[in-house]
Design a binder for these strands. Structure first.
Lengths: 112, 112
DNA sequence: CAGTTGCTTAAGCATTCACTTAAGTATCAA
DNA sequence: TTGATACTTAAGTGAATGCTTAAGCAACTG
């Protein structure tokens, strides 16, 4: 629970970069090796690996090395954490709008 | 549509900072002035305003000045944009896991 | 009109970020 | 064992980030 809050920083930070979001999108279709992941991007391999490290540190991606190939896959828990945070905020805000709506409706009733 | 994708960068970037997330959380309870918003934070007012500018540029927050008071409120559309992106990713990933599950189930059937 | 309040502008500064190139180190394949 | 493949490590660089202080300005308050 405490860990999750700390990690929200890193998760949002990780998702703020379009290359990293691209990698997440790719990985949502299934696991991939580092060089597979790198292919669509016009940057050096070390740059890709650095992005990958950010993604892994945030918990969005897990990786595992077998032989000389590192395989990367989505870790759903981090995505759930984001989803939950955003959802909770939206709920709060919408509830407020509802209450405001009720209030205005009552005001109108009073006036009519 | 195109605008939204560009803005995902800024939205996630905005949410990556705990102070800014704090401000969003506060604003989900209702609008607030800049100084109200600043109160919980141990930083200078200009710093708060700079955070606010990031939030506004991302579309998460709208502000409006009346007299000398600037009132800030949540703009739900940006939160929806995040929610949609994360939701779409999760759906893709889960569908993949389902297909994988089916595949493994079939394999087991074959073996039995 | 003078003072206070609520923000705004500007400039500076240390740190972090997103890369780069160059030089490794393990595998695997022939 | 030689070469190619798949990363890995290290060091450097320019730009962006998250602050700060100092000074302003406009609007309400008495």
């Amino acid at each position: 629970m405490l860990k999750q809050l700390q990690r929200l920083d890193e998760i949002f930070q990780a998702l703020a970069d379009p290359s990293r979001r691209g990698m997440v999108e790719r990985l949502c279709l299934g696991p991939a090796s580092v060089s597979e992941l790198a292919k669509p991007f016009a940057m050096s391999l070390p740059a890709v690996v650095q992005h990958l490290q950010v993604l892994e540190a945030s918990g969005l991606v897990r990786t595992e090395k077998v032989g000389r190939v590192r395989t990367c896959r989505i870790d759903d828990a981090a995505l759930q954490t984001v989803e939950r945070w955003v959802n909770d905020r939206r709920k709060l805000w919408e509830r407020r709008l509802d209450r405001l709506g009720d209030f205005l409706a009552e005001e109108n009733e009073d006036k009519s």
